[in-house]
Amino acid sequence: MSSRFAVFGLGNVLLHDDAFGPQVISELRSQWLIPDDVVVEDLGTPGLELSTHLAGHRRVILVDAVAADGSPGTLVSYDKETIVRHPTGIRLGPHDPSLGETLLTMDLVDDGPREVVLFGAIPASTEPGIGLSDEVRSAATQVADDIVQWLRDQGIAIAPRESPVPRIAWWETPTEFEAFRVAGNQLPDSH
């Protein structure tokens, strides 16, 4: 909570390219030594619960699949002003407070992050199923580098791992991942 910077991956790993955010998080962890004062986490698909994670951080990077016009794998980015500019609609299912709405709600009580950058990629498919498209997979590698650059621009020292650890996207591991099952059911996502 006291950390100044956070990078959060958003998305549903069971819906193909919607796993873009979580994929980028596993990419960052496998290739880079993340300093202790930077929080890097796969948040899956939070609703308003996102506010719990945003609170207390001054600058936040969000990584998510983006429904924009363009070819699959195209990288896009948005700042906070753009995210909150568009009014939200009448919600039928009350469980999809939009990102913009969450940020506006937090501003109402003055504990939202000052700066938010959303790094996104346009998905090829968000149908149920596991595994990224080739375009979005290479976009994830690319955007991880962009995020590292962004953090360095903010004065964060971040070094590559001398020997990168395996890139673990647990949801893509077919079955029988016995190696990761230590002390109960600790999965690689838990660190």
Partner: peptide, 12 residues
């Protein structure tokens, strides 16, 4: 739940 951000801010 699918969480794709829509920059056009279409009404839900």
């Amino acid at each position: 739940a699918c969480h794709v951000f829509d920059p056009n801010g279409n009404q839900t």
